[in-house]
Amino acid sequence: MKLYRPATILVGVLFVLIGGLTRLATPDQVYDEQNIKVVHGTIGEPLDYEGTGSTVKVTRIKFARSVLDSSDSDGKKPLETNGIYVAIEWDAIRGDRKPDLTNATLQADGGSVYQPVEGLSHSGLDFPDAGYAKTGTVVFEINPADMKGLTLELRPTMLFNVYNSDITVDLGIPTEAIAQQMVDGAVAQYIVEDAVTRVAS
């Protein structure tokens, strides 16, 4: 029996060609991560968590030279800084499914990534139970030299790679001059109120 008939070779060549064609047909990778939808917004804009019915909104940001928990006793000294504190007041409305745990960070154009301050018990960002809404504050210590383009990023931490939203909020500091104004106008002390939960209307 003849092992390599012309038809056998033809089928082999065809397979190779089809393999090449499918590679050509795949679209260029558009996203860094295909399971993440980046939701970008500004202060005052409720931003949707895909598929959970939950939204989160930054209501106000406030720059301060020192911060203090509202429940601290009278004698307690406020937290001072060599940089500047920025308190981000947020409002979160919870849908029927809880969004994955979010990790709040601030990013600036200069490449800095800021993490929330430790040592303030009221500072944080989380979602209430279904049907409720919550307001609270998350405080960051930042470097006044790298504030331009400050953006709040709420990135879900996932155990499995499911379709999810990455929320970014532009905090409205487009230039160095505006950043300087924010620093100059910072209040001497900011009191961090405890988060308040209410029924979502």
Binding site: L79, N82, S112, P116, E118, G119, E141, D146
Partner: peptide, 17 residues
């Protein structure tokens, strides 16, 4: 750091704590 705060977060670009 910073008056005995456990787990104090050190910010890049700021002076030492």
């Amino acid at each position: 750091c910073h008056d005995d705060k456990i787990g104090w977060v050190l910010v890049y670009g700021l002076p030492p704590e």
